[in-house]
């Protein structure tokens, strides 16, 4: 029995087919160098990538990028929306906008709304999610449906329903409060800026509460059970488990949820249209409503001015999203540290 040589193989020696059967078979194809095959495979991959990305890119170009470019362009014109924009006004729309108290009031209201809804809906939905992920809870599916149902109702319809419910003349809620002797029957929550804003915030929270509860539930379900089991063995209470395990573990996801909540809330529009119409007076104007009124308020339409407002608002939203990126990166680092 002779042993196979064990010394180093000469550099120019071809690998044996016994040692690398697949590669050998691959190389044994006549006239097809391996590099070319790899290139071809890469080319095919690129085609697939293009095929899958193409439709999205096309839609993105048509419905995001192009409108954005057009908005930038229109913002330098005084344009009523019909025919090509002809009256170039340079930065006039922007300087007018910066000096327009109504725009800044709308910005302040938008931020108040965004912060207000976020501060209410996130803790509440987290609390609900914590309960909904308890093993002892019955009828989880039914409860989930109940919490999620308002999200299915179109915003405009929700707004109209609450308009009638809260109407001081004959609204059901007001009648009930009046019946209980809690009000004089003429309480108009929409007659005052702060109560109107609060009503907007609470109705919005009611509507999107279920969505954020689902987000939290997804985050909570990612916390490994072993941690709770170990904590239980160490004699940790439920409160300790919540504050020492659950909350730190979901922190990375929480950052994303907070940012999503803020950005989504900044787009508030439908509720304002249906519930307050920006009133009383202009006290509940938000930026989207301001833009809408400029663009479609009445003749002559101020599309140029509305475009400038839209762009300025987009810049603000962009700053928020960019800051979200920073927080998300930090959150990702935390995730790695926690090993989840």
């Amino acid at each position: 029995m002779t042993l196979a040589p064990t010394g180093p193989r000469p550099p120019d020696a071809a690998p044996t087919t016994a040692a690398r059967p697949r590669r050998a078979a691959f190389r044994s194809r006549p006239g097809r160098p391996p590099e070319g095959n790899r290139e071809r495979a890469r080319g095919r991959d690129r085609l697939w990538v293009a095929a899958f990305l193409g439709p999205f890119l096309l839609l993105y170009l048509g419905f995001t990028l192009w409108p954005l470019i057009a908005t930038v362009y229109y913002s330098f014109f005084e344009w009523s929306g019909t025919g090509p924009p002809e009256q170039f006004v340079g930065g006039d729309n922007y300087s007018r906008l910066l000096g327009d108290p109504l725009f800044w009031q709308a910005v302040v209201n938008t931020l108040l709304f965004a912060i207000g809804t976020t501060l209410i809906k996130l803790p509440l939905s987290l609390l609900a999610a914590l309960v909904m992920t308890r093993k002892w809870l019955r009828a989880k599916k039914a409860l989930r449906t109940v919490f999620f149902a308002p999200l299915i109702i179109p915003v405009a319809m929700a707004g109209l329903v609450f308009t009638y419910l809260l109407n001081p003349s004959n609204g059901a809620l007001n009648s009930a409060l009046h019946g209980l002797g809690l009000t004089d029957g003429t309480t108009d929550v929409f007659a005052n800026r702060w109560t109107a804003l609060l009503a907007l915030i609470l109705i919005s929270v009611w509507q999107v509460f279920g969505q954020y509860m689902i987000y939290w539930m997804a985050a909570l379900q990612n916390v490994p059970d072993e941690l709770y089991e170990a904590a239980a063995l160490d004699g940790a209470s439920e409160w300790q488990k919540l504050t020492r395990i659950t909350l730190p573990m979901i922190r990375p996801v929480a950052v994303v949820i907070v940012m999503l909540a803020l950005v989504n809330a900044m787009h508030v529009f439908g509720l304002v249209v249906t519930l307050t119409g920006g009133g009383p007076g202009t006290s509940t104007y938000v930026v989207s409503y301001f833009i809408y009124r400029q663009a479609f308020g009445s003749l002559p339409f101020a599309y140029g001015y509305a475009s400038a407002a839209a762009l300025l608002f987009s810049v603000m939203a962009f700053v928020l999203v960019t800051s979200q990126g920073l927080f998300v990166r930090r959150a990702q680092r935390l995730r790695k540290e926690y090993g989840v």
Binding site: T282, G297, S298, P300
Partner: peptide, 22 residues
């Protein structure tokens, strides 16, 4: 005239509604 009334066309009503409620 169109330009004068076109700037915030519903301003008068916004002002009246605001003052009435407040």
């Amino acid at each position: 005239y169109v330009k004068a009334i076109g700037e915030r066309p519903t301003w008068e009503y916004e002002a009246m509604s605001g003052a009435l409620n407040s």
